[in-house]
Amino acid sequence: MELDRIEKLLEKYFEAETTEAEEQVLRDYFTGGSVAEHLKEYSAMFSYFSQAKEERFTKQVPLKPRVNYYKWISVAAVAVLVFGIYFGKQYQEQKEAEYAYQQTKKALGLLAQNLDRGTQKVAYLNEFQETKQKIYKNN
């Protein structure tokens, strides 16, 4: 009678019409040990299913969030950027000031040089003055 019921359940099982409870009955029967000779082939299936259910995931999962990590990296990046701009600007200003100084120096130098040349030329006027004096004295 028991066997009859198992056979019926098997038939239903392969048509996928068994309920969970019925499948449990089958599992219990086939893993129980006292399986009828002509049904022995099926026990491999059910034994495998219960055996496969025992497999475990043993690997550790590193759950430390990487999100925070990114946050701090971005903070550091912003800091570097701000400092970069700040010091870069300072450096730029220094450079500009130096350039202006050089330009002014050059301009003043030019001016001094030309002024010098001017006074040299004006020195000739003295020559004229002296000659004029000589002529006056002669008269």
Binding site: A52, K53, E55, R56, F57, K59, V61, P62, L63, P65, V67
Partner: peptide, 30 residues
């Protein structure tokens, strides 16, 4: 364990299945 068994059923290799399960758990954590 169910996730791992499913992954192993599809990927066959236990290493691959472990990696996949880890990946899924980390995705869930995120």
């Amino acid at each position: 364990d169910k996730l791992y068994r499913m992954a192993k059923r599809l990927l066959v290799s236990s290493e691959e299945a472990e990696d996949a399960t880890q990946e899924i758990l980390m995705k869930l954590w995120a």
